[in-house]
């Protein structure tokens, strides 16, 4: 469930990032809109989504995606816009079209920053997915919420530790990807 949420967040987030980069008119409204979503408390967001998606997995996934979009989209947008001018000039001098410059140069050179955005998204998603237990989304979140409701300290500790461990692990993996990319491209970033 968590991975599904993350997968869609990345897909949509990167798409929004590229879209806003290519249509700068939309950049401010779209990113500000996402900012507003971001500031809605997670429990409130879940409750808001209940009437639309009903109880269960869907609202949780949708909520995680909504939360994760901002960091990914924003980092994608910032990354694309801030690729050093020299590399763009090189690509143009060689005879790349604008589209090729975007996908062959800007996008790959933004990957470290995009990976950074995904890292933040991972942490957000973990939080929301855990809360999802409240609305019968199943998974670790459900076990955790059960523990809380029954006041079973053991369950809370075990599932809590698991959630924490998973969060750290995923964050670590994303971090490694981010720094590998940076190292590979040399010192420019």
């Amino acid at each position: 469930m968590f991975l599904v949420a993350l997968f869609f967040s990345i897909l949509i987030g990167v798409f929004i990032g590229i879209f806003t980069y290519r249509n700068p008119k939309f950049a401010a409204p779209v990113l500000n809109g996402l900012n507003v979503v971001e500031s809605v408390p997670d429990v409130a967001l879940l409750v808001l989504l209940l009437p639309i998606f009903g109880i269960g997995t869907e609202p949780t996934i949708v909520a995680s995606i909504l939360y994760s979009l901002l960091p990914i989209a924003r980092n994608t947008y910032t990354g694309l816009s801030n690729v050093p001018r020299v590399y763009i000039e090189i690509a143009e001098a060689l005879g790349l079209t604008q589209r090729e410059v975007l996908f062959q140069v800007r996008f790959p050179l933004s990957l470290p920053l995009i990976a950074g955005g995904i890292r933040i998204a991972v942490v957000f998603t973990m939080g929301v997915v855990t809360l999802g237990g409240l609305i019968a989304a199943g998974g670790l979140g459900a076990a955790l919420q059960n523990g809380i409701q029954l006041y079973d300290m053991g369950t809370i500790l075990v599932t809590g530790a698991w959630v924490g461990f998973l969060a750290v692990l995923l964050d670590g993996i994303a971090g490694i990807i981010e720094s590998t990319l940076k190292a590979r491209y040399g010192t420019w970033s």
Binding site: V86, Y87, A93, L94, G95, T97, Q104, R184, Y185
Partner: peptide, 30 residues
């Protein structure tokens, strides 16, 4: 202009390789 540039070999001042591409990819990009 794109066609024109692809028909003219250009060696850029200060080298100008793309940092995210391997040497083979830099040379073979076009």
């Amino acid at each position: 202009s794109v066609r024109l540039r692809r028909n003219i070999g250009y060696v850029i001042q200060n080298i100008g390789l793309l940092p995210h591409l391997r040497i083979s990819e830099n040379v073979g990009l076009l």
